[in-house]
């Protein structure tokens, strides 16, 4: 084991990490198992069956809802991450900006309002200005509340980043833009990736704001699922979740493989 020779190694941390992933994935295993349940219940086992997958694939509504959710999450993530990155760069690298605490406050403002209040406020506001863009309405609302989730990791990264490299580049007469492109952004990338991931999962899971802001024809998966629980979730929801999980595993594997190839 090279691990114990790694100077950064700390006893127990790998075990905590292992425990962390078990903790994170234990409910998912249950979820996948029950998607094959023969009875209507998502929590009482009655035998093996593919019935719910057949049902889910025949259910246009649930598929439309899942597609809507993914589309919204992708657009909101791109928008929120871009906006948050620009703001974080300006706030942390531009010394001439005044009122930084105020701007910092504005950027995490969407986080401070209880969801239902944001939902009612946004609904009232959209109706008042007559905004009606179908999924666009939801994408705008999601972009807003995803900004703090994208901003904080990026900012945390920037705050600790050594500015000497950027200074060196500028000393070598690199333009501001070139410095940004070749030095700052690559260094910032882990922060941007973390922020984008948070924004994505936040958007994918949002219920209350989406429910209020959604127009006719733009039901998302959380809306579909949350209103189902009045009866109790059926394994059909588990089946759809499992398909989404499988999809995400494929995306993750692909990006991992591509990332590896690019390096060699």
């Amino acid at each position: 084991m090279t691990r114990s020779r790694d100077i950064r190694w700390l006893p127990g941390f790998s075990w905590v990490t292992l425990f962390f992933f078990v903790f994170l994935y234990a409910p998912l295993i249950i979820l996948v198992v029950f998607s094959f349940n023969a009875s209507r219940s998502a929590t009482v086992w009655a035998g093996f069956s593919f019935e719910w997958y057949t049902k889910a694939f025949a259910n246009d509504d649930i598929q439309r809802a899942a597609t809507n959710s993914v589309i919204i999450a992708i657009f909101a993530t791109i928008a929120a991450t871009t906006i948050a990155t620009m703001a974080a760069l300006t706030l942390s690298r531009n010394k001439r900006v005044k009122g930084k605490p105020v701007f910092g406050g504005v950027l995490i403002f969407p986080l401070m309002i209880p969801e239902i209040v944001t939902a009612v406020a946004t609904l009232t506001f959209f109706a008042a200005i007559g905004l009606s863009l179908g999924l666009g309405n939801i994408i705008i609302a999601h972009t807003v509340f995803c900004i703090p989730f994208a901003y904080l990791p990026i900012r945390a990264r920037l705050d600790g980043m050594d500015e000497s490299l950027e200074a060196a580049a500028q000393d070598l007469y690199a333009s501001k833009f070139t410095t940004l492109r070749l030095i700052t952004l690559p260094l910032l990338m882990p922060g941007i990736v973390s922020g984008a991931m948070l924004a994505f999962i936040i958007s994918l899971d949002d219920f209350i704001i989406t429910l209020m802001v959604a127009e006719a024809g733009s039901t998302t998966l959380p809306i579909y699922i949350y209103s189902l629980v009045r009866i109790g979730i059926t394994p059909e929801v588990n089946a759809v979740s499992t398909v989404l999980l499988g999809f995400s595993v494929i995306v993750v594997t692909l990006s991992y493989v591509i990332g590896k190839k690019n390096k060699t």
Binding site: F21, L28, L31, A42, L204, S241, L245, V252, Y256
Partner: peptide, 24 residues
């Protein structure tokens, strides 16, 4: 490359709905 894999592993569970996970 392993770091990125770990990060992605953290986000995978969140592709499933919070409510469904809480039920589990």
């Amino acid at each position: 490359d392993r770091r990125n894999l770990f990060l992605l592993l953290i986000t995978i569970p969140f592709w499933t709905n919070l409510l469904v996970r809480t039920y589990c």
